[in-house]
Design a protein around this nucleic acid. Structure first.
Length: 571
RNA sequence: GCGCCAGUAGCUCAGUGGAUAGAGCGCUACCCUGCGGAGGUAGAGGUCAGAGGUUCGAAUCCUCUCUGGCGUACCA
């Protein structure tokens, strides 16, 4: 039992040991035990943890659930971690944490500080989280913000759960979309030099393309102009992509998201630094050797229907250019084979779900590690403005950029709004409402709690009071212990996020932890007795309560940090 | 047509096969008047889209129907 095992696992192990002891003692038949033995009951009256094991064993043990509960409860070691178990019909064993254990956890939280609630689930496994990865053809829109919030927070949770995590942005700088982007940019650039040209059909009509052309003109003058009717120098494309990528990087930085690596799609087609074949050539060679490729109608196909897919997919077009799918196969060859990630998570908008199964098949064919690839889809964000629904599409007309959203509601509120919703849930984002209610956004509820905690510690320090040497055994009031109990859930929430890839649990937990603090703090006020506040004439009690406040600040700060939000000392 | 995701309070959404289905906003009534009121307590508000099924137990799993979103390219 290590320090980093969650409390839930610890309590579950106690139940397992008790059940095994009951089997050895002959009071329970020798039956197999399921994995998850305890859960958090919805109603706190049913304890901190509850086990429905007796109900689940009733059939195989051929015993009434209550009799099984009695048999197991008789072997549960009350004392160190839990109090005496309570049996409840129809067959639950309810367990409460022992008071002295709860109190002692305050000291442990303070001792662990910023590593509080870290876990060992990941065992140092190397995981890559790739997210956003929007085409470098325009600014990020609101939907990309959802991907950024989900990906970044998931990466943080995995890291806290003991994985070694790398965040990556895949820059699609090789496809036809960037060709169209470059053509559009060049058209705008020519317009700025007085040429009467129009942007290409299917090009990017957005005003930002004019801004980019202006930047290009201001930096390079007319140097990039080719003869009328002639194609421009490749530099136009290079510089355009570089400008857009820088813009995207800046947007994400403002949003609170930074990456370990920005990976160029084009680099997949270049020989590696040590002279080895390009990732693309290497991946294609493997597919060819293993008989996964076929030529047909002038194109090269991955025979994915042999791999359980609905159909085959084109890898190299009849004109010789590789498809996006080819890049993706090479990219995942690079991730799994060249860079040796043990687990890869890609976070995509739901509009890409048509690629999911074929990428899984392609990855399996080229690396054999299809099982280690996790494609997490988030449903698209629908924007509402003035009661009207606006579709988010870069190639369509109107887009609301992530910059605009952050400008209006701030990065913390924007992130939190995205994180509250499950990735699988379609969400309506009412812009008018988000702006109007920004001061009542639940994000402030959490941050306000953190600021109040900081304020109490400041105030105490001003009076020469500190948490040093406080004896946590003095904390016995229900609202004090309830606050600690809530903090103890964090490690379990982190593990839940790391296993389900659903960051919304963290956001909801943050709300609940803040609620526990507000209720704790208000309990002192309601009693109206100055001696019942955190800071009282009683020096020992004050120090003990300051320890609780400090621990709560650590826990709440950790939650905010995991979500990529600021934890303000004052607001 | 086929495939994927969803449908839970007036609105936006949580909900790990378990005990009386929750939160925020909005609404109503109180508390406190502060170590930060961006607070606390309580209440009204539900056919968990519908119908079958599995189970000791279903919002949760399975089947069908309805509704919405997305996909079904030698675009990405």
């Amino acid at each position: 039992m290590t320090e980093t095992t969650t409390l839930r696992d610890r309590v579950g192990a106690l139940v397992a040991e008790a059940a095994e002891a009951a089997i050895r003692a002959g009071s329970l038949p020798d039956v197999a035990l399921p994995d998850d033995l305890v859960e958090r009951p919805r109603d706190p009256a049913n304890g901190d943890y509850a086990s429905s094991l007796p109900l689940r064993l009733a059939r195989s043990a051929m015993m009434p659930p209550l009799a099984i509960a009695e048999a197991i409860a008789g072997h549960l070691p009350a004392g160190e971690v839990i109090d005496e178990p309570r049996i409840a019909p129809p067959g639950f064993i309810n367990l409460s944490l022992a008071e002295h254990f709860v109190q002692g956890e305050i000291d442990r939280i303070i001792e662990q500080g910023p590593t509080f609630a870290d876990g060992a689930l990941g065992q140092g496994k190397r995981v890559q989280v790739e997210f956003v990865s929007a085409n470098p053809t325009g600014p990020l829109h609101v939907g990309n913000g959802r991907g950024a919030a989900i990906g970044d927070t998931l990466a943080s949770a995995l890291s806290a759960a003991g994985y070694e995590v790398e965040r990556e942005y895949y820059v699609n700088d090789a496809g036809t979309q960037t060709d169209v982007f470059a053509e559009t940019l060049y058209a705008r650039y020519q317009q700025q030099h007085g040429r009467d040209v129009s942007i290409p059909e299917g090009g990017y009509p957005g005003e930002y393309m004019v801004d980019l052309a202006t930047q290009l003109r201001e930096r390079e003058g007319d140097r990039l102009l080719a003869e009328p009717g002639e194609p421009p120098s490749p530099e136009v494309r290079e510089m355009g992509i570089a400008l857009i990528v820088e813009h995207i990087r800046g947007t994400l930085a403002t949003f609170g998201t930074t990456y370990d690596r920005w990976f160029s799609e084009r680099s997949l087609y270049e020989p590696s630094a040590d002279g080895a074949a390009s990732a693309y050539d290497a991946a294609i060679a493997i597919l060819r050797e293993n008989g996964h490729l076929a030529e047909r109608e002038g194109a090269l196909w991955l025979t994915s229907s042999d791999l359980g897919e609905d159909k085959d997919n084109v890898v190299v077009r009849s004109d010789g250019r590789p498809t996006y799918f080819a890049s993706d196969i090479a990219y995942h060859y690079d991730k799994f084979v060249r860079r040796d990630f043990e687990q890869v998570i890609n976070i995509w908008g739901a509009d890409h779900h048509g690629h999911v199964s074929r990428l899984e098949a392609g990855t399996e064919a080229v690396t054999g590690k299809g099982d280690a690839l996790h494609l997490l889809l988030y449903q698209l964000v629908t924007l509402k403005r003035g009661g009207e629904t606006v579709r988010l599409s870069k190639r369509g007309g109107e887009i609301i950029t992530l910059d605009e959203l952050v400008e209006e509601v701030g990065p913390d509120a924007a992130r939190f709004f995205f994180l509250l919703r499950a990735p699988s849930s379609q969400m309506d984002f009412d812009l008018d409402l988000a702006v109007k209610q920004s001061n009542e956004n639940p994000v402030y509820y959490i941050q306000y709690a953190h600021a109040r905690l900081a304020s109490i510690l400041d105030r105490a320090a001003g009076e020469g009071r500190t948490p040093e040497g406080g004896d946590v055994a003095l904390l016995t009031a229900p609202h004090e212990l309830a606050l600690v109990r809530e903090m103890l859930r964090l490690a379990e929430v982190i593990e839940l996020v790391a296993t389900t890839y659903e960051p919304q649990h963290l956001a909801h937990y943050g709300m609940e932890l803040a609620t526990s603090f507000h209720a704790f703090n208000d309990a002192f006020r309601q009693q109206g007795d100055p001696n019942l506040k955190v800071i009282t004439d009683d020096a020992a009690l004050t120090a003990a309560r300051l320890r609780l406040v400090l621990a709560a600040k650590i826990a709440l700060g950790r939650v905010l940090d995991l979500m990529g939000m600021t934890a303000p000392e004052r607001m």
